[in-house]
Every structure is written in structure tokens, then in C-alpha cells.
Amino acid sequence: MKRVLVVDDDPDILEVFQMALESERYEVLPLLSPRYIFKNIKDFEPDLIILDIMLNGMDGRIVFKELKSNPDTENIPVILASARYDETYIHSQQYHPDAYLEKPFEVARLLQEVKTLT
């Protein structure tokens, strides 16, 4: 079973991610904060990470850069998600996600991106 780590500070959005992914038989670890993301990655060993950009008190882009700069996590695919930024902006940054979801997103698109990356 493929594992997906999802980080979003909105419990309702986190629940949508979890329900959609579990319906497709993914094992999901939902996190409301990236505070202990590296410990959770080590323990859970995800095949994919879905990371919100606008997190309460934290910037998901910084977390993303840390993931891609760390040899232990650099090869884990990451989908960035945001209601604030568009895909053009995301791809203009130094580090590029494996996929991008603009919120609100269609569940079918989420599942297709996850399937492609896992």
C-alpha cells in the first residue's frame, strides 16, 4: 500500500485529502503542522508528500526547500497546494514541485496526480 503524508493547517481540507486518498486505498498520515515533518517522514516513510503553502505561522515553500535540500528526503515527490498562488508563480521559484494543486481542487485531479507520482 502506497503512503501519502499530507500537511495542511485546515482540518476540513485535510479531511478531504484523507477521505479521497483512503477511498483509493492509500495509507494517509495527516498533519496540521509541518513542525515535526522530518520525524514523521522517517517513521511513516511516505511515497509522496502533499504540502500546503500557506500554513499557520509557517511558509510551506520553506518547508519544501528543506525537503528538497535534504539527501534523506530529496527524492520523495511533493505536490504543493495553495489557494493563494497560481501555477506560474510556483514554477518560477528555485525549487519545482512534482505537481501543483490550486485550491479549490477537483478530487479527480488530486487522485490523478497522486497516481502519477506514486
Results as ranks from 00 to 15, higher is better:
residue 16 V to E: 04
residue 32 L to I: 10
residue 21 L to P: 14
residue 56 N to F: 00
residue 61 R to K: 12
residue 1 M to I: 07
residue 22 E to F: 00
residue 84 R to E: 10
residue 48 L to W: 08
residue 81 A to K: 02
residue 12 D to I: 11
residue 58 M to F: 05
residue 98 D to K: 14
residue 89 Y to T: 13
residue 105 F to Q: 04
residue 15 E to D: 14
residue 93 Q to C: 09
residue 46 P to H: 08
residue 20 A to I: 08
residue 64 F to T: 10
residue 4 V to E: 11
residue 61 R to G: 01
residue 56 N to S: 11
residue 33 S to M: 02
residue 75 N to T: 11
residue 89 Y to A: 01
residue 79 I to V: 15
residue 92 S to G: 14
residue 22 E to S: 11
residue 70 N to A: 02
residue 46 P to E: 10
residue 83 A to I: 05
residue 105 F to H: 04
residue 106 E to R: 14
residue 104 P to A: 02
residue 66 E to T: 04
residue 67 L to A: 02
residue 86 D to H: 05
residue 18 Q to V: 02
residue 117 L to T: 13
residue 14 L to H: 09
residue 33 S to T: 15
residue 31 L to P: 03
residue 65 K to M: 07
residue 64 F to M: 06
residue 96 H to V: 12
residue 4 V to D: 12
residue 11 P to T: 07
residue 34 P to R: 03
residue 2 K to P: 15
residue 67 L to F: 06
residue 100 Y to N: 01
residue 18 Q to Y: 00
residue 64 F to S: 02
residue 36 Y to K: 15
residue 89 Y to V: 10
residue 77 P to K: 13
residue 55 L to G: 03
residue 75 N to H: 12
residue 66 E to D: 09
residue 29 L to V: 09
residue 117 L to H: 11
residue 46 P to K: 12
residue 99 A to T: 11
residue 6 V to Y: 06
residue 61 R to N: 11
residue 64 F to L: 03
residue 92 S to H: 06
